[in-house]
Design a protein around this nucleic acid. Structure first.
Length: 463
RNA sequence: GGAGAGGUGGCCGAGCGGUCUAAGGCGCUUGAUUCGAAAUCAAGUGUGGGGCGACUCACCGUGGGUUCGAAUCCCACCCUCUCCGCCA
């Protein structure tokens, strides 16, 4: 029997004596793409068990779902499993007899002819099964995560409740400039040449501008690793398709990614992808959780649906830098971890002395994979607006199911899915925007926030 | 990029067409022994699917093929190691 059921594709046998999940040394789980494919994003058993409740919870996102096809496919799937198992069982019994039988005997020959037919039935059964799985997958892969019960109802961003406000808008006795103007005037940002050497939405940082970006990255990583307990990761900036599926970007959002078709690789849209997938196909010992990582990476996004939006400046680039926080927790712990992680991101803004607010994304504004999301919006005087600078989400078991990231609950017989979380801590490009616009002076120069001074090589002002 | 070797359970490692429901060792868990421990002895110890359950099915890098039957044979691919070349 060639084709195992989809979940049986996993070969992770990682029972670890150590406290950390680890890939097997020579295992192919790292390299193979197929294992993590064909995994539902939502638990089909949960859906089948109570489709009404499931549909009602999903409806909070604003779009109705029709589960009839899916449920019918699931019934068909079970039938095929039962039939296939039965056929295989009978066949292996027959083969047991054949082992013992005289290979020249009529009995043997008759068995062989019979089994030749059974083998064909099994193969047909498997083909059907594969087709059913593929069809189910198509449904499941496109179903977004269930919103957390605590997520506020609402249709769009306008309905996101503001949970807290920190600091206040700076007052200027002059008209504050936009970061584009400041960056160009002070020789920090070169938008024109970015466009020349690459294209629209690419920018060159220069001199103290480049230094500021680097200082922010270091400051953020130092704070998260030194004070918030994160382990620093520097991941690959190219990932395979299995990783993109693991965190939920693929297959639905292929349009948003830069693909290297020839090599089957994708430029990371966020460090969330490589870092969460570090533990794809792995099982944690419960004592190892929670696991917290902080990772710097550039982020590459095609911004497919954003034509004409934020065309000026650093706000919306095809490449930007980000420090990302990623956590793996037990289900009981993820809500607490979500608050903590968001607090860690906020602490960067507070230390930089930037005014911001935290909003609770309503069900209609929630991302595809997220169950609950807090956005941090920083005040930008040059835009006269709050702009998202961090997005902190709890995915609950959505990504974990997809990426097969499990743990061994204390005393339990079966392994369970972990919860994954992540958040920007922070988007560096937008932080540069915030620093430039909030710290600008009447003389056109920009003061460097105190916490960054140790990273700026003696500079106290830009310009 | 060229040449060679190899991918088997938490780890090491045997197996090379049918008692593989994968030998053996190490590790781990539990029990016996002990005042306690070490040593020793015994049992257990992968992942996932289906079933209320008894139970059953799949998985030996991945995919495909041959066969009544594949960890074992054939093909393709991926990855690892060694040497050479190139290179930050």
């Amino acid at each position: 029997m060639g084709r195992p059921r989809p979940t049986a594709r996993r070969t992770s046998r990682s029972r670890q004596p150590a406290t950390r999940a680890r890939p097997r040394k020579r295992s192919s789980t790292i390299s193979t793409v197929r294992k993590s494919e064909l995994r539902p994003m939502l638990d089909i058993r949960l859906i089948a068990h109570d489709p009404e409740t499931f549909a009602r919870r999903l409806l909070r996102r604003g779009k109705g779902v029709d589960l009839e096809d899916l449920l019918a496919l699931d019934r068909r799937r079970r039938e095929l499993i039962a039939r296939g198992d039965e056929l295989r069982h009978d066949k292996s019994k027959a083969e047991e007899a054949m082992r013992a039988a005289d290979k020249q005997s009529d009995v043997f020959t008759r068995f062989r002819e019979e089994m030749r037919v059974v083998a064909l039935s099994i193969r047909a059964c498997e083909t059907d099964f594969e087709a059913v799985l593929a069809a189910m997958d198509e449904h499941l892969m496109l179903l977004p995560n269930l919103p957390d019960d605590a997520a506020p109802d609402g249709a769009s961003a306008e309905q996101n409740p503001i949970l807290r406000v920190v600091g206040q808008k700076p007052s200027f006795d002059f008209t504050p400039k936009d970061h584009t103007e400041l960056g160009e005037a002070l020789g920090l940002l070169d938008f024109e040449r970015g466009t020349k050497i690459t294209g629209a939405r690419f920018t060159v940082y220069r001199g103290a501008g480049a230094r500021l970006e680097r200082a922010l990255i270091s400051f953020m990583l130092d704070t998260h690793t030194g004070e918030h307990g994160y382990t620093e990761i520097l991941p690959p900036f190219l990932v395979n398709h299995a990783s993109m599926r693991g965190t939920g970007q693929f297959p639905k959002f292929q349009e948003d990614a830069f693909l290297l078709e020839r090599d089957g690789l994708v430029l990371v849209p966020t460090a969330e992808v490589p870092v969460t997938n570090l533990h794809r196909d792995e099982i944690f010992e419960p004592s190892a959780l929670p696991v917290a990582y902080a990772a710097y990476s550039p982020c590459f996004r095609r911004e497919a649906g954003a034509h004409g939006r934020d065309t000026k400046g650093l706000i919306r680039q095809h490449q930007f830098q980000k420090v990302e926080l990623v956590m793996f927790t037990t289900p009981e712990d993820s809500e607490r971890a979500h608050e903590a992680l968001t607090g860690h991101a906020e602490s960067i803004l507070e230390r930089l002395g930037l005014h911001f607010r935290r909003v609770d994304l309503c069900t209609g504004d929630l991302g595809f994979s997220a169950a609950r999301t807090y956005d941090l919006e920083v005040w930008l005087p040059g835009q006269n607006a709050y702009r998202e600078i961090s997005s902190c989400s709890n995915f609950r078991d959505f990504q974990a199911r997809r990426a097969a990231i499990r743990y061994r609950p204390e005393g339990a017989k079966k392994n369970a899915l972990v919860h994954t979380l992540n958040g920007s801590g922070l988007a560096v490009g937008r932080t540069v925007v915030a620093v430039l616009e909030n710290y600008q002076q009447a003389d056109g120069r920009v003061r460097i926030p105190e916490v960054l001074l140790p990273y700026m090589g003696g500079l106290t002002h830009l310009g």
